[in-house]
């Protein structure tokens, strides 16, 4: 007989483990990555590969030489951060920009807090925001032009055509620019490249992950089916954005963008499906998650419609990340309270 193993119950474990969950997130991000590669070819491959590699290497080195702990690369969380970072950067980002991003994400936003599970802010988003405020020209619209000779292997004809139409800016940036010039909303929306179908399937301009709403939705559905995440955060963000933006738009259609455009444009879907739902930086209870989502939705629209930046999802998520410890103080509903003394 083997030497008996003894432990307290339970004696079996479910199928879930950290690596499998992270692996599922990676699979869910694949449609968005593939769309990006479809359009931009080698540039997109370069972006994703450098980003993932840099994140993994940074995590490995920091864990080994600074924290002196067991390697945590195997849990795949650095890969997820790498892909998310890539999807948050413009396709033609230079390699050094990606490296800085990866260092900020892993080195500053994740490992300084103690590694996986300890960080307060979403690493990829911290990196994006640091890059956005440090290198605004590279990170926003004007840098979105094709490299010389076009995109290798990419669908450059389509890409260039659409890019020309919006003078290289992201849809949100373009709208904001035009509004500032005094052009009315109805006229702006008539510009080619801003139709709903285009937003849904393949819009251009914006970061690598914002190209196709459909690809992101596919990934989200996959995560839900695999029970990796619950839908509450994402749904509450989307509903809040729709309702809040809708109210503003009904108030003054000439000045504010309509709610559907708000849902489909910018990084909202990427943020709502993949960034806000990050386990580590989102609340534990359903009630907390709904409040978290509503907060993100409101802040996003406030920044989009009244702020200086055309896009506010990343800021909104980071601001709400900081409220998570507070939201986690909301206790879940108990099975039953103590009986009332008669």
């Amino acid at each position: 007989m083997n030497t008996l193993i003894v432990s307290p119950s339970p004696h079996v474990h479910g199928k879930d483990n950290t690596r499998r969950l992270m692996g599922d997130v990676i699979i869910a991000l694949m449609p968005a990555v593939l769309v990006s590669i479809w359009f931009f070819g080698l540039s997109a491959i370069h972006l994703v590969c450098v980003s993932v590699l840099a994140c993994v290497v940074f995590e490995y080195l920091i864990q080994k030489f600074l924290l002196k702990g067991k390697s945590t690369v195997g849990d795949l969380s650095a890969v997820v951060t790498g892909i998310l970072l890539a999807l948050n950067l413009p396709v033609c980002s230079p390699w050094w920009l990606i490296l800085i991003g990866a260092f900020v994400a892993i080195g500053i936003a994740k490992m300084t807090f103690g590694g996986l599970g300890q960080n307060l802010f979403n690493p990829a988003l911290v990196a994006r925001v640091v890059l956005l405020v440090s290198f605004p020209v590279l990170m926003t619209g004007t840098a979105f032009h094709a490299p010389e000779g076009g995109y290798l292997f990419g669908n450059s004809e389509f890409a260039n055509a659409a890019l020309d139409a919006t003078s290289g800016a992201t849809p949100l940036g373009f709208v904001k620019e035009q509004l500032a010039k005094g052009v009315s909303m109805q006229e702006i929306m008539a510009t080619p490249g801003l139709s709903y179908t285009q937003l849904l399937f393949a819009r251009l301009g914006g970061s690598a992950g914002e190209l196709s709403a459909i690809a992101l939705i596919l990934g989200f559905i996959y995560l839900l089916c695999r029970r990796v995440i619950k839908p509450w955060i994402s749904l509450s963000i989307l509903i809040t954005v729709f309702v809040f933006a809708g109210a503003l738009w009904l108030g003054n259609p000439a000045k504010f963008t309509d709610p559907v455009f708000n849902l489909l444009s910018g990084g909202l879907l990427l943020g709502a499906f993949f960034m806000a739902t990050d386990y580590v930086t989102s609340p534990m209870t359903t009630k907390g998650q709904v409040i978290f989502g509503i907060g993100i939705g409101v802040i996003t629209i406030l920044i989009r419609e009244f702020g200086a930046y055309p896009e506010g999802v990343s800021f909104a998520i980071l601001i709400m990340n900081s409220t998570v410890p507070l939201l986690n103080r909301i206790q879940p509903k108990r099975f039953a309270k103590e009986a009332q003394k008669k």
């Binding site: 950290t18 969950l21 945590t72 599970g117 580590v280 879940p332």
Partner: peptide, 16 residues
């Protein structure tokens, strides 16, 4: 390994 704060234990607990 590290708690990734996924909240699965909270959803699984039958006693809230």
């Amino acid at each position: 390994s590290n708690c990734i704060r996924c909240g699965k234990c909270v959803s699984a607990c039958p006693m809230g």
